[in-house]
């Protein structure tokens, strides 16, 4: 049998192997305490007391029970139409954004447009489009063009032209230089080089980005209706405000199913695209 190691002796010989130095331990403890107190202060500021949380949870449980069983209500066709509207908003918005982003993406790519300042300005402009949330654009567009899906489509176009142009320009910049130079060496002009040297490399990636943005827009367009920009979100907030919980639960389930279906279709398409591009 092995002799038992003398832990006390080893602790005396190599204290660092058992614990970090005192200064480090003090620092860790004081940071931890500061974070704890900061968090408690934050909870107090937001008025998140245990009492309120417990009351809310019991209320939530009551609502959850009221949601069973989910029911489509008296006008199921209204919900189906609202769902179609949601999908249509996402598709039309992404389609237009994907087209508008093509010239912008080419202009923002370093290997296409060598003019630094112009590219810098364009990129900052795209950043601003993306920097303001889609729902904020939707809220503003509802005020400008009125209630309805048009405001939702416009908000998708504005934010995702920015996102897609950025993604496109990155796909273009990642293209292999040798293929571009090969095409240029045959005497091709600028446009022909872009068409035959650059585009075939970047196109599958660009299409896959557009599909990905479509997926994300299907998710986000379900809530655009909450600010009045059309689609299923309007029906949902309407049911919740009227306290018709079974119908609200049904709509939430509809959203989950639709998002899952669109994700799997779009995911399969994207895998095929990326495989064909390779």
């Amino acid at each position: 049998m092995m002799p038992r190691p003398d832990i006390a002796a080893w602790r005396a010989r190599a204290p660092r192997a058992f614990a970090p130095p005192l200064a480090r331990r003090l620092l860790a403890w004081s940071t931890g305490t500061a974070v704890l107190f900061g968090t408690l202060a934050a909870l107090l500021w937001l008025d998140m007391t245990p009492q309120r949380i417990l009351n809310g949870l019991s209320e939530l449980l009551r609502v959850a029970l009221l949601m069973l069983p989910p029911s489509p209500g008296e006008r199921p066709m209204e919900l189906v139409w609202a769902m179609l509207e949601t999908l249509a908003m996402a598709f039309a918005g992404t389609f237009i954004a994907a087209l508008l982003a093509v010239p912008l993406g080419f202009l923002a790519a370093r290997n296409v447009l060598p003019l630094g300042p112009l590219r810098f300005g364009l990129r900052r402009f795209l950043d601003v489009l993306r920097g303001v949330d889609q729902l904020i654009w939707a809220l503003i567009f509802v005020r400008a063009v009125g209630l309805g899906p048009l405001a939702g489509v416009l908000s998708i176009i504005v934010t995702d032209t920015g996102t897609l142009a950025k993604l496109y320009s990155e796909s273009l910049e990642n293209a292999d230089r040798r293929e571009i130079e090969g095409v240029r060496a045959t005497g091709a002009g600028g446009v022909q080089t872009a068409r035959f040297g650059l585009l075939p490399q970047a196109l599958p990636l660009m299409l896959s980005h557009a599909l990905y943005i479509f997926e994300s827009n299907v998710r986000s367009s379900t809530i655009l209706g909450i600010v009045g920009a059309g689609g299923i979100g309007f029906q949902l907030s309407d049911r919740i405000r009227a306290l018709r919980w079974e119908e609200a639960a049904f709509i939430i389930l509809m959203i989950l199913v639709m998002v899952a279906v669109i994700d799997s279709i779009s995911g399969a398409l994207r895998r095929r695209l990326l495989a064909s591009g390779r």
Partner: peptide, 13 residues
């Protein structure tokens, strides 16, 4: 939307 009903209007929801 659900939590506002259960926890009341405000930051907690």
């Amino acid at each position: 939307l659900l939590f506002i009903y259960a926890f009341g209007l405000g930051a907690m929801a």
